[in-house]
Structures are given as structure tokens and as C-alpha cells.
Design a protein around this nucleic acid. Structure first.
Lengths: 218, 218
DNA sequence: TAATAACAGTTGCATATGCAACGTAAAAGG
DNA sequence: CCTTTTACGTTGCATATGCAACTGTTATTA
């Protein structure tokens, strides 16, 4: 467990629990498991009864749609967690598959141990609940604003909405975006070259200025 | 308070609290306020410190983007709640405005009273936390699957993804959808006539059959 | 240093989409 | 019963987009 402390400190789920972390993990009955590259951690259709914490290695979340098309929803690195929404919602059948992208170690926390009031009524337990709540709430807000972007019908509107949000966030009309062109195109779910085209037009129109990842709204 | 009981029983946030509801609301220091049609319940930029429960009337959630375009995100009816994500996340400035669409009564529950452990350590308090967690988790999953739909690039793919999800949900290739054409177009964020066109094509291709709201995948 | 690969912009082209306008059928309202 | 409204499909047209191919620039690596 000691060799995990560095990682565990970075996990938001454990914020403000600090030095009592090991006690709490004991109290919650956490389990650590190892997976080899390519191994399936959780299969579509299985119940999700615990929250996973990536201790080392990388993990992919994969969705297979009705017609069998697979798509990678996200990739998780050490310190990231998964399954928190499904576990909290009491989902009986996972809609996603979780796969070890590389050899990895995962820690599992049973959700019912997190939710049920601790018999020892330790203060860390309620802190954990509060953290989980905040994580879900934040993700909610994130998903909502992404929804907002994706509901724009043209690339132009998607881009302007995105840049507008960034400007608000930084509190300035001039800012850096955290994406390369490829990544931005992926994020907005549009074709890369089409994105380039629209950006060029916006620049020519005098609506925005940019160079690489630095943008300015006019 | 008595005249609200009917509504309050339908509120998921109060699931499994049953007959002790009034005690709990007292314990949490709930407040009821009245608003006239058109009055602003919460202004963009204000802090969100409580969860709102619509007791009567209708409420609109409105977003104004960076360029001043207003859009109605949702409309809430009696029994619905709002602000739970912003309050739980500890958002300092609300990104949305909440407006009374008609005369209405709203009950507010301060989030810190919900989150902090109850000094009386009443069991209903932890039930409330659990309910809130579940609500956020469910909304999370809902938003994720909507994201999935919106990230499809063509109307055809959006429609097929949507119908695929519905089929999975009903466990059958034949099912009713809960939307009219207009509503479906709104939901998928596409033009109504373009949606009609795509549906016709899919029918002609022999990919699907439908009549009104009844669909069948082939 | 040269070779190679990743990244970003550009362009041609087929197709998809939004938009507006129109027609029809069913529902609502007088 | 007639009128009005609403829902839905259809179509023409301008435009937006995806896709593929090509270019130049910048990193990376041998």
C-alpha cells in the first residue's frame, strides 16, 4: 500500500483525507488487483458494484453500440477513477467495457461501503461521500457544457461557443487552448480539415485571431 | 406545508423518507418562496447555495452564451428540482438564469445542510445524501448517452444511434419513441425537415420501418 | 545531418444539411 | 360543419461538411 501513497494523494476522491487514508481504505475494505495488457477489467453487461482507481498503467473505456461499432470513450491514467457514476446509480448492466491498455494495477472500493454510514461513524467517511458528490456534480457540469457545444449545428458555431467558454473561463479575450488541432477536432466531433477551414474563415472575417494554440476574440 | 405533501412524495430527492419528511425539512431548515410570472429566481453570476424544488407552477432554465444568444435549456414542472449540480459542485457563479415561467412556489434546501452530517445524525439525512448521489449519477449517465448521440456527425448516424439505444432499452427491435418529429429533431439538435428526409431514406433503404412514433429496426 | 514522422493548412468534389416554401392530413376550436 | 391550427412529409437551393489528396513546416529519430 505504501508504494501507492504518491498516487492516492492525487485522487480527488480522497481529498482532505490526508494521513488517515490508509485507515480509511482498510475500513472500506479496498481491494487491489493486477491486470495484464489487453485483459478485460469489466465487461459490458456486468454489474458495476465498485469504484475503480487506477494505480498504475493505463485503462481504456470502450463502448460498443447497437451495430457493433467500437469506440474509445476515454483513456485513464494513474490517479483517475472509473465506474463512479454507474456504481452510484446502481446500474445493473454496464454499458461499457473497461480494458487494460497496458499492464496495470487497480484499486476497487465497493460502493455500498462508501454509501452506507460507517459503523464507526468516522469523519473520513462523510468526507468521502462529499468528495464523491462533488466529483459527480463537476462531471455533470462538464458534460452539460460539452452538450451545449455539440448541440450547435455548424462547426462555426461549435468553435465560437468553445472559444467563448474558454474566454469566460480565463476571464480574458486572449487565451491558450489546451488542444492541438487534431484534439480540438476530436473534442468537437468534426473533421480536422473542416475545422481548419472554418478557423481560417473566422480569421479572414476578422472574428478571431490565432496562432497555434493562442487565440484572441475580436 | 401540508398542501405540498402530494408533490413532495413524487420528488426523487425524498425517496424512501416517507412519513418523516416534514421532520426532515424542518431539520434542514427548508424555505419556501413565491415568485410571479417572469420573475427571476436566480440570476446568471449569482452563487448557487441551495437546491430548489418546484412545488407549483413552471420554471425555465435559461442560458445566455458569450455572444448574448439566449436559449432555454429545460422547463421544470412541479416535483422537479434544480441547482443540485451547481450547489453540490460548490459553483461560485451560476452559468444559467432561472426564471418563473408562471406564478410558482419553490422550496429551497441549503446544500451545506444536506451535505454536513446532521448533528442529530438522523437516518433520513444519510438517505437524503444517498438520493442526491443517485440523482447526480443518473443525470451523469443520461448526459453521457446524449453526448454519444450528439457526437455522431450525420443525422443518419444520430437517428440510428438513438433508435439503437431505444431498442436496447425496450429489449426489442420494435418500440414506441416518446417524441413527436418536432421533439425528436430538437432532441437530436437537427432540422425537422432534414430529419424527415433522413427517416424517409432509411425507410426506403429498408433499414427501418415506422409509422408515427412506432419504429422497427430491420 | 539526413530521413522520417507528426501536425496543420489548402483544395476539389460528392454529399449532407439547413432553410424556406408548399401540400396534405389530422386535430382542435368555434 | 366549417375554419384554423398543428404535425409531418416533400422539394429546390445555397451552403456546410466529410473525405481524400497534396503541401509545407516542425519535431523526432536514425
Amino acid at each position: 500500500m505504501n508504494n501507492n501513497v504518491e498516487i492516492l494523494r492525487k485522487v480527488k476522491l480522497f481529498d482532505a483525507i490526508d494521513d488517515k487514508l490508509e485507515d480509511m481504505l482498510q475500513c472500506l475494505g479496498s481491494e487491489e488487483k493486477k491486470y495484464d495488457r489487453g485483459e478485460i477489467i469489466l465487461m459490458t453487461g456486468q454489474p458495476v458494484t465498485s469504484v475503480g482507481v487506477v494505480l498504475s498503467g493505463e485503462v481504456q473505456i470502450i463502448q460498443e453500440d447497437y451495430y457493433g461499432n467500437r469506440s474509445i470513450l476515454t483513456e485513464l491514467k494513474p490517479g483517475h477513477i472509473f465506474g463512479e457514476a454507474f456504481a452510484s446509480a446502481g446500474i445493473k448492466e454496464s454499458p461499457v467495457t473497461i480494458l487494460a491498455k497496458s499492464n496495470c494495477r487497480i484499486m476497487f472500493l465497493a460502493i455500498e461501503r462508501i454509501i452506507s454510514t460507517c459503523p464507526n461513524s468516522c469523519i473520513f467517511h462523510s468526507q468521502l461521500m462529499e468528495n464523491l458528490l462533488k466529483i459527480l456534480a463537476r462531471k455533470n457540469i462538464l458534460l452539460s457544457s460539452k452538450n451545449q457545444l455539440l448541440s450547435q449545428r455548424t462547426i462555426r458555431d461549435k468553435v465560437l461557443s468553445y472559444l467563448g467558454l474558454q474566454a469566460e473561463k480565463k476571464g480574458s479575450l486572449e487565451f491558450e487552448i489546451p488542444f492541438s488541432r487534431n484534439e480540438l477536432a476530436d473534442f468537437l466531433c468534426v473533421d480536422r480539415s473542416a475545422l481548419s477551414r472554418v478557423l481560417s474563415q473566422l480569421k479572414k472575417d476578422g472574428t478571431i485571431e490565432y496562432q497555434n494554440q493562442h487565440f484572441r476574440l475580436l
